[in-house]
Every structure is written in C-alpha cells, then in structure tokens.
Simulated scan of single mutants.
Amino acid sequence: MVQVTFKQNPVTLPGKEVQVGEQAPNFTVLANDLSPVSLEDTAGKVRLISVVPSLDTGVCSLQSKRFDQEAASLGDNVEVLTVSADLPFAQKRWAEENGTQGITLLSDHRDLSFGEAYGTTMQELRLLARSIFVIDDKDQVAYVEYVPEGTDHPNYDKAIEAVKALTN
C-alpha cells in the first residue's frame, strides 16, 4: 500500500495501487467543456498522466507547466494528460492564464473515477495525490511514481525517460 503525506500529515489513499506491467485501469473524467473523457479516448498512443492536487498551487502549477513544455518534444504519438480534482472551469482558467498548449487538463471532481482506479484519492482532502503514470500504446502501465510527500515535485526526468523509451 502506498504511503503518502500531504504537508507532512499522513493521508489515506483508498483504491488499488497501480503497478508497472499491469493493464491500465479505465476511468472517466471531464474535459474543460464538461464532456466525458476516458483512457479509451487516447487508445493507441503513449500516455503520460500527470496527477496534481490543485492547479492553483505552486508545485502543481510548475509540474503542469513543465510537462506542457516537454510535450512538444515527445512526438505526435504521445498524449500528455494532467488530472486533478479541480473544477473544469478552474482548469480552463488556469490553462488560459498560462498559455498551455501541449497538455490536456482533465477534471476528476465529479466521481473521483481516476483517483479510485489509480489509488490517488486523498480521502481526507478529496484531492488527488501527486503522481505520474506512463501508459504504453497497448494500455500497459510502463512507469509509476506516487510522490511520497504531496508538496514535493515528482521525478520529471524519469517520467520523460519512460515516455521516450516507449517511442524510440
């Protein structure tokens, strides 16, 4: 079971910890126009899924900007998705304010479908724990990082290396 803290306080992550080599669980989240989006909608592509508690915080904003900048160099067969429990309207505002173009922002606020499927829901906060998942074009999990302290950055380089290993 994954052990995560948020501001040094332990949080409960119900759901199953996703492991490398497993079939990626499906989920349904919302796009910024409130349309449903699932893992199946990006079938056949490599997916880098960056999970953040809230785009309106410093580390989450920096994480999302970093992957937005990296997205262009990853090629057309890679989708970079950022998932949070922020409302779709807040995500859209953040994207407009930050001029993002390489990432797709998705909201898990309605059902916590992603959080439950990937074991990232912080039960006490109803936010998602910072984590990274890389899924190959056949829906197999190739890389997983659950960041132990929710206010720390993930290992950007390892996540990008995992994506590049699947596309070279």
Rank of each mutant, 00 (worst) to 15 (best):
P36E: 14
P36F: 05
V37F: 15
V37Q: 14
S38D: 11
L39I: 05
D41Y: 09
D41M: 11
T42W: 15
T42Q: 15
T42L: 08
A43N: 04
G44T: 01
K45H: 10
K45S: 13
K45Q: 15
V46D: 12
V46A: 07
R47H: 07
R47L: 13
L48D: 05
I49R: 09
I49V: 14
S50K: 09
S50C: 15
V51C: 04
V51A: 03
V52A: 00
S54C: 08
L55M: 09
D56S: 05
D56P: 00
G58P: 03
G58V: 10
G58S: 14
V59F: 04
C60M: 04
C60V: 01
S61D: 09
L62V: 11
Q63E: 15
Q63D: 04
S64W: 00
S64T: 15
S64G: 09
S64P: 04
R66E: 14
R66V: 11
F67W: 05
F67V: 01
D68M: 09
Q69H: 12
Q69I: 10
Q69P: 02
E70N: 03
E70F: 09
A71M: 02
S73E: 07
G75M: 04
G75H: 05
G75Y: 09
E79P: 00
L81I: 14
L81T: 07
T82K: 00
T82F: 01
V83D: 14
V83W: 06
V83F: 05
S84C: 08
S84H: 08
D86P: 05
L87G: 00
L87D: 08
P88I: 12
F89C: 08
A90L: 07
Q91C: 03
R93I: 03
R93L: 10
R93N: 10
R93Q: 13
W94N: 02
W94M: 04
W94A: 07
W94S: 03
W94H: 03
